[in-house]
Structure formats: C-alpha cells, structure tokens
Nucleic acid binder design. Structure first.
Lengths: 199, 199, 199, 199
DNA sequence: CATGAATGAGATTTCATTCAT
DNA sequence: CATGAATGAAATCTCATTCAT
C-alpha cells in the first residue's frame, strides 16, 4: 500500500512483514539485511521492492502494522469495561502480553532510527502516538471521573509505556525463556498505586 | 617525567569520549562515523584506534563512562539522605536532570546494538545493570524498612528507569527545546504513588 | 482469417516501435526502462519480448526503422530533381526537417551503445551506413558530373551528417523550443560553399 | 578539486583521470564500471570516491580536463597566426589530430548522458561550449574582416565540430587502425569552401 | 498471444579499519 | 604517538528478462 498498491493478493506482502518482523527483531534495523528478510520470507531480493519502497519503509511498515494491531486489540477489549482503573489495568495487561508473545518486538520498537528520512520517521512517530493515544485517553477519562490524579496525561502514558517496555526488554536481554514476572499484575499495581505502601 | 605509567596522559582519550558522546548523541550509533568523531575531538582518524579497539568499543566506553558518572553522582547524593522514599525521589530527580542536561544521550542509551559482539554487548548490559543497581538497592532498602511494597526490586527499578527514559525521549522527539514537564516531581509522584487518587 | 502469416497483425509491433521512439528519445537508451516503453505503447511488459529479442534489439530496431523511413523519403524526393547540387540541398533540407520534427531523435542516434553485442552494433552501423549512403551517392554523382570537387565521398557524407546533427543537437540542449536557425538554407550553403566569401 | 580538494599530491587523481579516459573510451559511460576504472588506475575502488564525488563526476571531469587541454593547445597555436582563414584551418587541424591521437575520446564526447544530474550536465555543456567558443571567435573575426560570410557563428562552429567528430567517429567504428583520410586538409577545405567546384 | 509478478545479477557507494610515514 | 590516504567488504537498490497463468 506504500509503494505499488495494485499487486495481486498473493500474500507476499504479509509474508514479507512476518519475515521482516522476525529478522528485525533478531538483528535490529541495521543488523538486518534486505536479502535475509527476503530469504526468510521465501522470496527473491527484488520482490521486497515490489511491495515496499525501501528497507526503511519495510521497517516502518512492520512497526505500524504491529502497533495498529495492538491498538485494535486494546480498543476492542476496553469497550466492555467500566472505570478508568479497570481499563488501564487491562491495557497494561494486554501490552505486556503482546510484548511477551512476540517478545523480540521490543527491540524493534527501541531500534535506533536516528537519521531516518523525515517522512518515515514521521510515520513511526505517528504510529507510536496513535497507539499511546489509547492509554492517554483512558488516563484522561480517569482524571475526569476523579479516579486518577490530575497529571499530564501524555506524560503518564509515556511513563507507563516506558515502564512496560523496559521491564520486557530486561526480561529479554537476560535471555530468560520466560519472563521473570509471569503476569502483569505487579506492573499494573506499580502504575496505579506506585511503590509506596499505603499510609 | 610527570607520570610514568603506560597510560597516555595527553588527554586524547577524554577528548575522544567527549566528542563521541556528542556525535553519538546527535546521530546515534549507526549514523555517526568514526571520522566525524575524530574531527569533533580534534584528533586524527587513526588516533581513535590507539585508544579504542573499534567504533563499537568507543561507543560502549561512552555509555560506561556516562553511566558510571551518573551512578557516582547518585550514590554521593544519597549518602546524606534518610529513608528509601527520599532516596528514590532524589534518584529519579538526578536521573531526570541528567537526561535533560545531555538530553540526546537517551538516544545513545536506546541505541540499537543488536548483533554486537558478545563481549561488548555484555559490557553495556553490565554498565546498565550497575547503574540501575543503585535504584534497585534503594528499593530493596525500602522494602525492608516497610516503606515500599514487597515488589520484585529489579523489575521495579527497570520500570522506573523506563518511565524516566520514555518521558525524556518523548520530550526529545517532539523537538521541545525545554521539557514539557519542567521538573521531575510528577515522575517522582508517579513512581511512588501511581496514578490513583488516594482514598 | 484476414492474414495467415506468422506475423502478428495486431499492430503491437508498431505500437512498440512508436512508444520506444518516444521514450528512448526522451531518456536515451540507458535512461529508458522496458517497463516504461511498454506502458507508453499500451501493452504489457512481457509483450515486448514477443516482438523483440531484447531491449537493445528494440532500440536498434527503432533506429533502423526511422533511418530506413528517412532514407525512403529522401530517395523519393530526389527522383524528380536534376543536378547533384539540388539533390544535396534537398537531402540536407529533409534531414534537417526530420531532426527538427522529431527533434529528440538526435539523442537516440548519438546514444551510447558502446559495448553492445556485436550483432546489434553491426545493425546500427549498417542502418546508418545505408542512410548515409544516399548522400554519398549524390556526392559521387556530383563528382562525376564535375559539380563537386574530387573529395572522398564517404568522408564528405559523414561531415555533412555531422554538421546537421550537431547543429540540431545544439538547438536541443539549449532548450530552444524552435530551432535558432529556422530553415536549413544556412546549412545547405555551408555544405555546398563553405564559410569563405567568394573571390 | 571537485570533492576533497586538500589531498596530498600523490598523483592519484591524474592516474584516475587517465584510467577513466581509457575505460570510458572503450566502453562508454554506462558500459564502464567504477571498479574497472580503479583497477586500470591501479588503485582501490574506494579511492575513486576520495577524488571524485561520483562516477558521473569522474566522467565529467575527464571531459572537462580533455576539452580544456585541447582548448589551451588551440589558443596557444592561434596566437602566431594571421587571418581567420589560417586560424580556422589550424583549429580544424588540431582538432583532427587530437581526435586521432586519443581516438576513442570521440565516443566519450558522444556518450549518452541523458538523465545526468543537472549540475554535472551543466558542467559538460559548459566545457563543450568553452571549447567551441574558440572556433566561434575565429569565425566572428572572419566575418568582421570580411573573410567569411555573414553566418550565425555558433551554428557554423557546431557544424564544423560535428563534421570533424563524425568523420573521426566513422574512422573509429570502421576499425581502421589509421584514419582513412590521413590529414585534415580535406576537412579544412570542406569547411572553408564547401563541396562545390568554384566558378 | 498477452501479461506482470517475481527474480537475482550487478552496479554504485559508504565507511570501519589499517599502515606507511 | 599521530596521522589520514587507501582499501575493499558489504549493503541497498534497479531493472532486463523469464515464465506460470
């Protein structure tokens, strides 16, 4: 949809996104080569450029895709919940599950994109913003209903995102095959109530 | 005959570390070139390899150096404080100041090093762990004194580190010349007490 | 059952030659892509290879076609003329008109085909030679009748061809929408009488 | 002087220009590879980019260099001559000698540069114009002194240039080891007096 | 006959690293 | 110790050509 939009639905685009996710996750943006992505996707090198404008476009597309996916899941699940607290808890839980399900993806998110072309950088930022926007909304809602304190919603959202990402990343680099904290409840508690024991 | 060790006392190493910090911060690991670092440091390109084994070694050294520095500062300041709460608050504050003082450094910390040589990767991890260890200790102390809940200290430390980093990063990519939240008090409150209104 | 030869009478070949002329003229041999030629011709990319052996073959065919066409036109017009002088003048005029009618074609003629496959190179050379042969014959005739000096006919023909081509090309690269010398009379005079003022 | 101006005088630049002249002459711009040029020049591939910004820059530099050289030679020789006629004759002679001395260079001059970057295209045009300017001046002089007819000087200059180039090229593609017309006198006569027998 | 998705050889260019001075 | 000219491995991307439909 980025480059050549009218290509027959052969599923190659999906194959490529999957392969790219895998390779970028393992090696990061710069460590990965287009050739390897193509190989993993089971297509020729040139085919990549039939579906994506450049290596960077491919990368950004992977990020967009995944974040959009998560955003969708989160929004869907929040519909049935009442109360900002419950919603935030659920968001964090889903987020956590997502990161532990396709764990290497954290590395993709944290990948060094300094020096990307403006437009693509923009797209990454937007995808991230869109995704974080969901959490931001929940926080805003909580502030309105009085459940949450009067914080800067965006800041809080990024703080939460950061907390989840870093814990997930830590799990990852320590090569634990399963996360050291098995469920998200500790993170939920941390975000909602902080570290301090209540008065 | 001021100094007879085989450590060159010409100060070039320091010059290089400074230059590298600046350039890596601006362009990230992959965006930076050894040549530019040498230029900024005011030395020849070949000189880099007299003091550092490789570009990566230089990069890792910068990270180590900076994290060690911050670790030292934090430890020093914590000595005079009483109570894990106060100590954690101070840690966060210093951390925040650090990130906003040499703001671009966040990018360095988050830089994509996937696929690095094992040894160097190890050193980065250790530097980070050592640095985070300070916060971890404070948390452990708080748990013991009953100030903090009985959380997994490492997880909590990473959550805090992540929260700070992401908020700082968000400030960065939005090109705000000054951070949107001017001091760290909101972050401190978030980490200590969470989002929920008490009672 | 209009035509039973194995020559496809769908007109695609002609369409392709036309499209190729246009595209090669605009972008030169190397700047043009087979895909664009096919697009302009309104056929599929693969179709090109049904009618031509390769991109180069297509290119050479265009040259052949056009030069043959011009050769035909010139020969036809010369039939009714008397005297080598008049014939040469008419040839130059037609040549000039041709170059200014499909002006970009000069670029095609001058296009860099170095390193072409021998066979194709040969064909270009022959086409050019055949085309120039007309002028050569006129010159030979003029020498016999005593109208022209006893020059090497081929050399003279190439000199004339070069003079016309370069002036046309100069017009082209200077982006003049109409040639700076509107008719060929100056060129005719140059070729017939040279620069020097008589006696 | 194009890219990195302050490189020690190791003679590599000259080596590269020579190698490039040779390779571009044999294979044309597109047929030549940077690697081969480097090989012929006896340097590494990367070295090319130390002295020239790109393959195209290298190519244009060769053209500039050679045309400037010829221009210089012509100007020098014309100084001692009297009369536009004699000057033009000498110019043509030198031109002819030049083309037959480094004969393959014609192909370089005629090379297909469609689609070059604007700036470089400009440089080629200017080099050519500067070179042809010499002939143009001579023609202007001749017109003023009454030796030549009142033609458009630029057109005449290009016509002459074209005549010489095409004859030289014809010699070349026919693989004659020595030119079919050994000296330039026929060309001189053609340009000065045309084909027609006087009176 | 016609198509265009797929391919992969091949070209340019960058840049970490070396080493002669 | 210091330098920076030289190198060449490696990566991205293009595009003529093929072939299954």
């Amino acid at each position: 949809m980025t480059n050549n939009s009218d290509i027959q639905e052969s599923g190659k685009r999906e194959l490529l996104l999957e392969g790219a996710l895998k390779v970028f996750s393992e090696k990061g943006f710069h460590g990965a080569t287009v050739e390897e992505v193509a190989e993993v996707a089971g297509v020729g090198k040139g085919t990549v450029y039939l579906y994506f404008g450049s290596k960077t476009d491919l990368f950004v597309s992977v990020v967009e895709e995944k974040l959009k996916e998560l955003k969708g899941v989160v929004k869907e699940r929040l519909k049935d919940l009442e109360g900002a607290r419950a919603k935030l808890a659920e968001s964090i839980k889903l987020h956590w599950e997502f990161f532990n399900q396709s764990r290497e993806f954290v590395k993709v998110i944290l990948s060094d994109l300094s020096g990307l072309e403006r437009e693509l950088d923009e797209r990454t930022r937007e995808a991230r913003a869109g995704f974080i926007g969901v959490i931001e909304s929940v926080i805003e809602e909580g502030i309105m209903t009085g459940e949450f304190k009067d914080v800067e919603p965006r800041m809080a959202a990024y703080a939460i995102e950061g907390a989840i990402s870093f814990v997930a990343f830590e799990n990852l680099v320590n090569d634990k095959s399963s996360p050291s904290i098995p469920d998200a409840s500790q993170l939920v508690d941390f975000c909602l109530c902080g570290l301090c024991r209540l008065g």
